[in-house]
């Protein structure tokens, strides 16, 4: 029997809430080194990869690998029923039945909640994703996640053009990042400049540009990533016209969540 135990209920609640809007299923892999999660959205345009090393957990035990596809909406529902300080135990039988049991134990209330999830196909993942090289990107933008969330909120409140999927155009030029969305009767533009690190040393916006670049993304992907970005103080956006964009937030020194998004082409 395999039994990783962990106490990161709040963290997983937030991850599942962020992902379950956009991704239906995810592939989970628990190993001695930690957890790796991958999911692709139904239109196969965005891939999310979450890595959380064993050291990130208060308590983590996993003697043998445990790998499964799970429905994210069901998991989000289960985690909503759990308390934030619950201890989670994950159990799967050695002989590979096709379900996994998540047990939430509340030491304070003396209550145990148990959920069985059926394995699902997990939509063509896992994939081999090479570590990305920053030098391959035309522009790299780093900014506080709170700022990124504000920008996405502004764009999505305006960028609903009605009949088709709203998009955002992100352009980097002259050490500026411009985000643009078109609504029904007008447009919305936010321009961010590189900020002086002396004024706000803790929350700089940094723009490294090799060449000007301008890319179109579906707003729904940006919104999902902005929800996930609450897990970290900063986001990094790597942009290239040849490669999928990488939207990353690092989780302390203990892992990361990355969205790889294929840009739309005119």
């Amino acid at each position: 029997m395999l039994e990783p135990r962990l106490v990161q209920t709040t963290f997983f609640k937030n991850v599942l809430e962020a992902l379950s809007d956009l991704f239906i299923e995810a592939h989970f892999e628990f190993s001695r080194t930690g957890l790796e999660l991958q999911a692709i959205d139904t239109s196969r345009v965005a891939l999310v990869a979450l890595v959380l090393r064993a050291e990130a957990f208060n308590h983590y035990l996993c003697d043998r690998g445990l790998s499964m596809g799970l429905n994210l909406a069901d998991m989000a529902k289960a985690f909503r029923c759990a308390n934030n300080d619950d201890i989670i135990t994950i159990k799967a039988e050695e002989d590979w039945t096709d379900t996994v049991t998540f047990t939430f134990e509340s030491p304070e209330d003396g209550e145990i909640l148990e959920f069985d999830f059926d394995f699902v196909g997990s939509n063509g993942v896992p994939l081999e994703i090479p570590e990305y090289q920053e030098s391959e990107y035309q522009a790299i933008v780093r900014m506080p996640s709170a700022k990124f969330m504000r920008i996405c909120k502004k764009l999505s409140s305006f960028g609903d053009s009605g009949d088709r999927d709203p998009v955002v155009i992100i352009s980097v030029y002259k050490e500026r990042v411009r985000s643009f969305a078109r609504g029904k009767t007008g447009t919305s533009t936010t321009v961010c400049l590189q900020t002086q690190t002396v004024d706000k040393p803790k929350e700089p916006t940094l723009i490294e540009m090799k060449e000007e670049v301008s890319l179109i993304f579906d707003l729904k992907y940006m919104n999902s990533f902005s929800k996930a970005s609450t897990l970290s103080d900063q986001v990094t956006i790597n942009l290239s016209s040849e490669l999928p964009a990488v939207f990353e937030c690092k989780i302390a020194e203990l892992g990361y969540i990355r969205y790889y998004i294929s840009p739309r082409k005119e």
């Binding site: 345009v45 965005a46 891939l47 063509g124 896992p126 294929s262």
Partner: peptide, 14 residues
């Protein structure tokens, strides 16, 4: 309209 490559074009199966 916009064309769009699928993300799986960039990565290989593990």
């Amino acid at each position: 309209g916009h064309k769009q490559s699928t993300i799986t074009n960039y990565f290989i199966r593990a």
